[in-house]
Amino acid sequence: MTATGGRRIGDVLLKVEDISLSFGGVRALSGVSFDIRKHEIRAIIGPNGAGKSSMLNVINGFYHPQKGKIIFKDIARTDIGPYDAASRGIARTFQNIALFRGMSTLDNIMTGRLLKMKRNLFWQALYWGPARREEMEHRAAAERIIDFLEIQSIRKVPVGRLPYGLQKRVELGRALAAEPELLLLDEPMAGMNVEEKEDMCRFILDVNDEFGTTIALIEHDMGVVMDISDRVVVLDYGKKIADGTPDEVRGNQAVIDAYLGVQH
């Protein structure tokens, strides 16, 4: 990881324009547009089923919207797959932890570095010498992440055996291992106790601060959202109902109504 340092919010890194996505009859997203600027922490909030996770899935290429454009680093694409997204610098975590349960913490994080490794997996398998050396370099990078997230003691433990809070942390580690430009976090603090949440907040802020990583964050805990995000976009029933700083959003009547369940 290379520290770019500072937290100057920069130009637009990602822009989604007029995104509509439906599954059969279910409209998960209708005409949603917003942007994410370099180095910022951008929260996406909204009641259950609002379409937040679907939005992340669109951004990292799991879902293909029927309509709309995704412009990442000034290149517009609608049909990218997860492989392209990852190779262009988008990493993510999942709402329901998606780790490689049979592997150790270290192996999970190493897997996150796959794209950083030299191309052509196949020849690497046969080339012992150089591949070994390269492997050591990546190993060192993985160890730095392990130190950063304070999970040295579970380096060798198969992640399936870890408690929930630690699994979430390993998943963050795997995403960080890719040294992403844009990090998508889907409810990184869900199901955690207060102390674990505080740790997670600290890690997110440190990543953003030390490495300048841009972060899109889905979170239900309003306290956390208001504390750490620079700007917030609010979805409800697949539509964007508000967009602005935490203070602006907090006072917005549509947002209050959506959270109180006022009928539309």
Binding site: P82, A86, R92, A98, L99, F100, R101, L115
Partner: peptide
């Protein structure tokens, strides 16, 4: 172990 996660790391 996990298709989705594997795809997400590229």
């Amino acid at each position: 172990d996990d298709h989705q996660a594997a795809q997400s790391v590229g």
